[in-house]
């Protein structure tokens, strides 16, 4: 078994997400008369079949994992991703209704938080991500969500468009992700204060804002989810776009599984990010739009960064005085 790891993945999926119709017809009592033949066809007990057709997997008559994959794809993946996304949205909604967004009284003085290039790359990544999300959701869930509404003719069109769009924007995501990573990784390396910040859940449990640097613990976790999840969707995506890169069918199945799970995790996390960036913490969005944030905002949410800024400004002005 060369691709045992595909099994590990699928089993992992199976334990996390138990099969939906677990109570199928029992097969252990009566022996199917055709069992022997089918076992052979599937290559379980016999040597692989031979054929003159030259090609990858051409000697496989029936893909023995097909059913498992179908079950995973149609039943578990779709269902539990739906639960996850709906759950995250409801949680955010609930939080917002109970707690409301954070707000600080503005000072009117602005400090530069994000350079132009940083903002552009952020929105490039975000834009491509959204396009991929929409087309990806159509591809993964369209059969269940869009098809019943649209009917098969329209769905065929939407699905074709989504497939082309998804393929097209995939590589752009990789470019944007790498660029983004290079620009931001320095400020996302874990520090001790982040752990403290996380233990206090960023102040969501009360007790005021715990101190944070340029990015707080939560933002850093999002950054790394994005990086690792992004790497996972990217590599698996490349495999899916260029199947010739791998041997046989199993890596493709693996790629599909990884691609789906990583994408759903990313989408779920991005919901949290989008909430916090807009309604959740007032004034954050401005930082990514104009690059400027209010000093009071900086002081409240990223006090260590704010102090560093002040130190730098002081050092600069005293240097200027000495220079003259």
């Amino acid at each position: 078994m060369r691709h045992w790891w595909v099994w590990v993945w699928l089993c992992l999926g199976a334990t996390l997400f138990p099969p939906v119709h677990a109570a199928g017809p029992s097969t252990d009592k009566v022996l199917n008369p055709g069992a022997e033949l089918w076992n052979e066809v599937r290559g379980r007990q016999a040597a692989p079949a031979t054929t003159q057709v030259q090609g990858r997997d051409s000697q496989v008559l029936v893909n023995e994992w097909g059913e498992h994959f179908r079950d995973y794809r149609r039943q578990r993946f779709v269902r539990y991703s739906g639960y996850l996304l709906a759950g995250v949205v409801s949680l955010l909604l609930l939080y917002h209704l109970l707690h409301g967004g954070l707000e600080v009284t503005e000072s009117g003085r602005k400090v530069l938080r994000f350079e132009l290039t940083e903002r552009i790359v952020h929105w490039l990544l975000a834009g491509v991500f959204l396009l991929l999300t929409v087309t990806g959701v159509v591809l993964a869930f369209g059969r269940f969500v869009v098809l019943p509404w649209s009917g098969p003719e329209v769905f065929a069109v939407i699905a074709s468009a989504s497939k082309e769009g998804h393929n097209l924007f995939g590589p752009l995501f990789i470019v944007a992700l790498l660029w983004f990573f290079v620009l931001f990784v320095g400020r996302n390396l874990p520090r001790l204060v982040d752990i403290y910040w996380l233990i206090r859940a960023g102040g969501m449990l009360g007790g005021g804002h715990p101190a944070a640097g340029f990015f707080n613990g939560g933002e850093k976790i999002w950054f790394w989810i994005l990086t690792i999840g992004g790497l996972a969707v990217s590599t698996s995506g490349v495999v899916l776009d260029f199947p010739a890169l791998v041997e046989g069918r199993n890596p493709l199945v693996l790629a599909l599984v990884v691609h789906g799970i990583a994408a759903v995790v990313l989408i779920a996390a991005s919901f949290g990010h989008m909430y916090l960036g807009t309604l959740g913490v007032k004034g954050s969005l401005e930082g990514m739009k104009s690059g400027l944030v209010d000093e009071a905002w900086a002081h409240a949410h990223h006090v260590l960064w704010y102090e560093e800024l002040n130190r730098k400004a002081q050092a600069e002005s005293s240097a200027r005085e000495q220079g003259q």
């Binding site: 132009l116 552009i120 490039l124 097209l168 924007f169 752009l172 470019v175």
Partner: peptide, 17 residues
């Protein structure tokens, strides 16, 4: 087309940002 898209998106993002 990938390159053209990146280009146009960069230009437009620059325009708004």
């Amino acid at each position: 087309s990938e390159l053209a898209f990146i280009g146009l998106m960069l230009l437009w993002l620059n325009r708004v940002l």
